[in-house]
Amino acid sequence: MIERLASILAKNAAVDGVNETGIARLNILRSTTPTEPIPILHKPAVCFVAQGRKQTTLAHEAYVYAPMKFLIVSVNLPIAGQILSASRDQPYLCLRLDLEPAAIADVIGAAIPAGIRNEKPQRGIAVSDVPTDLLGAILRLAELLESGRASDRAVLAPLAEREILYRLLLGDQGDRLRQIAMAESKLSQINKAVAIIRCQYERTLRVEDIAAQVNMSVSSFHQHFKTVTAMSPLQYQKQIRLQEARRLMIAQAVDAASAGFSVGYESPSQFSREYARMYGLPPKKDVEKMRSMPATTWQ
């Protein structure tokens, strides 16, 4: 089945990078070459690799996945993704399904017996094996890309997505998936905090204020935030700032001082130090290096 999935993805991914499929929240990721670690803000999603191998790094934690493995991300996380195995003859091919809380909630009542629910917050990222029944559901969704009838995709894609969510909810990562949809879960509170930081990353934020906005004590907020994201709230904010500054310099040709100022740094020297600590090079040299690569490796 995995070979069949790879064949379908190869036919429906015309270029390296992210290929839209015409099915809501479903994209194909393709690369014909290995890449450098590329920092991105990864949204909640589940990623199924059909061919090749990739490593995703959160803080100092590495998650490697390949065919018959899947990556699940339950909260917006600043990660670095690196394709380890890919070639023109055997490109890296991955099917990414973005996770929609309402769709998950719609399946939860029938999928999860109350006795096995776990309310304890967990890391917002994990890698698991793909069971045969889950792979079958993924393949059924992918096969809709080969249908010549738009009505097939309109009617059957939501059913195939529902089966995938059902299989995931019953599997090893069911608790992570379920907490995405629960309004009162600790993960939901951390998600709200993440949204606050992302919307105001250029401002000086007080952890006490964020904790109050998500109805948590400061100590509980610190503990749960680090459990889910592998970093403190201020470290998370720093990652978002530096990623945005890098995007401005590469995509909009903004100079380093202006980019640092626009994301909240008052000192150019501090911005350069923290940038080099994160990316391994000072801003100017890093941007020159990234611009020398194919655009699909950093877009």
Rank of each mutant, 00 (worst) to 15 (best):
Y265W: 11
A111K: 04
V263R: 08
F261S: 12
R273C: 06
R178W: 11
P67R: 06
I116P: 06
G124A: 05
R123C: 14
P67Q: 11
S188P: 07
A256C: 07
M68S: 15
R4I: 10
M293H: 01
K238W: 12
R273G: 00
E3Y: 09
A10W: 06
Q189S: 15
E146P: 09
F70S: 09
Y201N: 01
F225N: 02
P78D: 10
I116E: 14
K289S: 06
I8W: 07
M1E: 00
V287P: 01
Y279M: 05
K186W: 11
L71G: 02
L144F: 02
K284P: 00
T204R: 03
E20A: 15
Y166N: 11
A230L: 14
L159V: 05
T21H: 10
L99M: 01
A157S: 08
I83C: 04
L281H: 04
Y65L: 05
G148S: 07
I83F: 01
K284W: 11
R206N: 08
Q122G: 14
A295C: 01
Y265D: 02
R96H: 03
M231H: 08
A13Y: 09
L281W: 04
L248T: 05
I79G: 01
C47A: 13
E163N: 06
A257Q: 07
P34K: 12
L144H: 07
I138F: 05
V254S: 07
H222P: 10
L156N: 02
A230S: 15
A102I: 10
R25A: 07
V228A: 10
A86N: 05
G260A: 11
Q55I: 14
A114K: 05
L281N: 05
T35F: 08
I210G: 01
A150V: 13
P283A: 09
S220A: 15
R206M: 13
M290N: 07
N118F: 12
S151I: 13
Q213P: 02
L187E: 05
Q51H: 10
I108S: 06
A126C: 13
V130D: 05
Q237V: 11
A295W: 00
E274Y: 13
W298M: 01
V18P: 09
Q239S: 15
